[in-house]
Each structure stands twice: as structure tokens, then as C-alpha cells.
Design a protein around this nucleic acid. Structure first.
Lengths: 244, 244
DNA sequence: CGCAAATTTGAACGTAGTCAACAAGTGTGG
DNA sequence: CCACACTTGTTGACTACGTTCAAATTTGCG
């Protein structure tokens, strides 16, 4: 039985009380396995519950009516899924498994109970939401104002660094788990151009590739070309109320 | 004395108890006037407080190191400002007044108190955060996957519709309050191209312009070319706990 | 092994960017 | 109150980054 991913995530920021830890673990009591490619939620589907991603990798995207797709974010273990169920009756985005994954669904009412009984966790969740919001605006800035090469570099860095946080074996070399088309749909490029940019990064010795695995050969240069900002630094959760 | 903008905003979604209303009003006790152009917070500035925007219009943006700018969002009365202070010690973005504005600063500790004493408000704030997150991903999709004309159309619609929510006099005609360069920095375009797109929208009779004021002449067609989705519909806050 | 999906490459094209010049506003100080 | 400076808006000509289309090749899954 895997520990509680979400409790672990929050535990990175605050020292949880036993009661808090317990409450968080209860969110992950039920498990649901998803095969690669499984759609957890389709755009406009009625939604009522949230999920914790426990294992695997997922993504959310929207389809425009000319058929093109914008990938909004990649989801890794410890992330909350479908938080928009807290406002919307129907999903604003499609959520699908990129790899075989495991999620734990919980009711919105569980979130309500959490707010009432554990206000500090409510604050921590707000803080996590903000981190995600900043990541999303970083992507907006990349898509709106940087070159194709910079965008591809930044997505490699982002996924590598996020994977590294819960999997220490990731250290410069990792399995991206995305097709070039998916990289394109995340960065606002075509698959063809993503291919050219990857080749260019490889030719310049910034990365290496071998059947799906990517090695970051020159992280410093990659960060420079990507305009990368580390958003895991400079955290300050000191304002949170006492834990219960 | 202007009422409490933030209490009014939340009141659109839940019927506040007297105690809740009171607690929200206390966030807006201090007022601070900002002249157009005033920088409230610079990227990387140390930050400790949040703000409610009470009057005027502001925006947040980031600068990339080639000097280009990406505007992340426009802020209108009732919006919270600098919520990222809940996670970061230093601001990830610059926040500046686009028009003469009024803000009410409050400490992060006031947010902590709110969480503890009024859990339902914590939930409502999470819900508002999600609405903003979805607005931001809509913009990402626009910048990543739609034409220049669509992006310009969508920003006109977005600002018009948001202004309309607290100013009933806005009805098809409004003062945008943005330079074409700012429209460009929000949509990932150059000012020159924004100009061309505005002219095109005007030539096609979708909009009209006269010294800064914009009239939406054909909202339906505009929504079609912009791929516009109304995110104020289909709300469901039914999960929130009891008010105190 | 066989087939579909994904990757790779080339060539032609087009949307949006760049550069430049001018016009129209806007605000300021003499 | 006007003159001047500066910002903003407008238009044209040229350029370039990334797209489109097409075809060959490789990969990986059933």
C-alpha cells in the first residue's frame, strides 16, 4: 500500500499533526487504476469529485473547435485533479492518463469537512494552488513571448524537475513519456517543429535522446535558453494558522 | 465610503452570514489610492500582504530577459491581488495600476484568521481561485492555439464582460483602458499586429472604435471568432460547508 | 511478425514580426 | 495659452519563424 501522496506533498511544507495526517490519508482510501489513455473526465462532463494522483502521469487539455488541442498542465503524483469541481458543475477541461496511473477519488464534501476541521490544511491547499497558478503563468509567458526552442527546453526542464521531486532516481536522465505531438500541444507548436527543436538542442549538446529517454547534458545552458525560473525556491508558508 | 468589494464578490455566490460579512469587511478597512502607472509590487520584491482591488484597473506581468513582457492578467474591482504572497516570499510578477485605483491591503495573518473562523469563506476563496485559474488557461489556449484576430477579439470580450459585472452602464460600449501595446503583451502579439487586427475587426463590422471607447457591434460573431467560453455560467458552490 | 503510431526530413508557404516613417493625441512647462 | 516633447496609433514594405504538406523511416505494440 502506497503512503498518502497528498499528505506527503503537504508535509513538504508543514509539519503535519497526527490528526491532520489522518484526515489527509482518508482522502486516499479508495484507489482507482487507470490504463494509459484512459479519459478520467471529458470536457463538459458533469463532475462531483476530486482526485489525488498517486502514481503515473496524467494531463489536462482543451480542444478548440478547429480541432486543435492545448495541453494545460501535466499531472504528477501528489497533484490534485479536477479541483475545478469546487466551482464548476461541468469540467472545463479533459483529463487523461499519459501512463498507467492510480488515482484516489474523494467527494467535494470531504473537502468541506477538511476546511472546517483543519483550517491549516485549507491554507496549505491554497498555497499549492498558487504554486500551480504561477507555473501556469510561466507557461503562458513562454508560449506568448519565447522562441520555439526556448519552449521545448522549458518543458523538458519542468517535467524533469518535477519528476525528480518524488523520484530520486531521476537525475539528468528520465523518460519523458510524451510524444512530440504532445510536447507541441503543450507549447503551442506543431509536432514537426518540436522535432526540429529537439534535434537542434541535441546538435548543440544540450540534451541527448535514446528511444524515449532524455538526458539533460547541460542544465545551465538549457535553463538559459529556456528562461527557466525555479518556483520551488523562496517559499514562505509562515502565515499558516496553527495545526489541529 | 464604498462598500466592501470583496464581500460583494463572494456574496454573488453565497448568502453571507452577518459574521462572515463582517470579517470580509475588516479586510478592507484601510484604503490606499494608486495613480495610474503606480507599481504596487515589482517582480522579486519582498511581499507580505495581500490586497483587495476596490476601484480602478490593474494588471500583472512578467518581464523576460530579452526585455519582452507578458501580461498575465487584468485586475478589476473585487479581485484579490498578490495572492501568491500565500506561498512566495518574493513576488513572481509585477503589479501596476492601469488606471487611478484604490486598493485595501491586509496581512497574511488576516487570511489565516479567516480560515480558522470562517471555513466557508476559505472554500469560496478557493472557488474564486479556480475561476481565475480557468480564465488563465483559457488565455493559454488562446495564445497557444488561436489566430491573432481571435486573440484580440477574446480580450475585448473578456474585459467587456468582466467590467459589465460590476458596472451596469457597460453594455456593448466601454472604455478599454489599454494601449495596443498592452493588448499585444497580453495576447502574445506585437502592437503593430494588434493594430491591424483591430482594423480588421472594425472593417468586418464586429466592433467600432472612437478615441479609446470600443463598441461591440456583433457580439455573437465576435464570440465565434474568439472561441469564447463564458466561465460565469454553470457554477456550483453547493459543496461549501455551513456559514458561521 | 505485421500494422499503426511516432519520428524524421525536405520544400513551399503564410502568419505575424520587424523596421521605418508619419499622424494624431496628450501632457507639460515656458 | 501655446509650443514642444513624448507616447500612442497607423500604414507600408520586407523578413523570418514556424506551419503545412508530403513522403520515407523507425518504433513499439498486439
Amino acid at each position: 500500500m502506497p503512503g498518502s501522496c497528498f499528505a506527503e506533498r503537504i508535509g513538504e511544507f508543514v509539519a503535519l499533526t497526527a490528526a491532520e495526517d489522518d484526515a489527509l490519508r482518508r482522502l486516499e482510501e479508495r484507489d482507482r487504476a487507470l490504463k494509459r489513455g484512459t479519459v478520467l473526465l471529458r470536457e463538459n462532463d458533469r463532475m462531483g469529485e476530486l482526485f489525488v494522483l498517486k502514481r503515473g502521469m496524467m494531463m489536462s487539455y482543451v480542444l478548440l473547435d478547429d480541432g486543435s488541442r492545448q495541453i494545460l498542465c501535466f499531472l504528477l503524483p501528489g497533484d490534485l485533479i479536477a479541483v475545478s469541481a469546487l466551482v464548476y458543475a461541468r469540467s472545463p477541461e479533459t483529463i487523461v492518463a499519459l501512463a498507467d496511473s492510480m488515482v484516489s477519488p474523494f467527494e467535494r464534501s470531504a473537502m468541506a469537512r477538511l476546511l472546517v476541521e483543519h483550517p491549516r490544511i485549507a491554507g496549505a491547499i491554497m498555497a499549492l494552488d498558487q504554486m500551480e497558478r504561477v507555473a501556469s503563468t510561466d507557461r503562458l509567458a513562454a508560449v506568448g513571448r519565447t522562441s520555439a526552442k526556448a519552449r521545448v527546453a522549458s518543458i523538458l526542464l519542468e517535467i524533469h524537475n518535477r519528476m525528480q521531486r518524488f523520484d530520486a532516481s531521476v537525475n539528468g536522465t528520465f523518460t519523458l513519456g510524451l510524444t512530440q505531438e504532445e510536447i507541441g500541444d503543450a507549447t503551442g507548436l506543431t509536432a514537426v517543429h518540436v522535432n526540429r527543436m529537439l534535434r537542434q538542442l541535441e546538435d548543440e549538446a544540450l540534451i541527448a535522446r535514446e528511444n524515449g529517454r532524455v538526458t539533460l547534458r547541460n542544465v545551465a545552458a538549457l535553463m538559459r535558453t529556456a528562461n527557466y525560473v525555479d518556483r520551488f525556491e523562496g517559499l514562505d508558508l509562515g502565515w499558516l494558522p496553527e495545526g489541529r
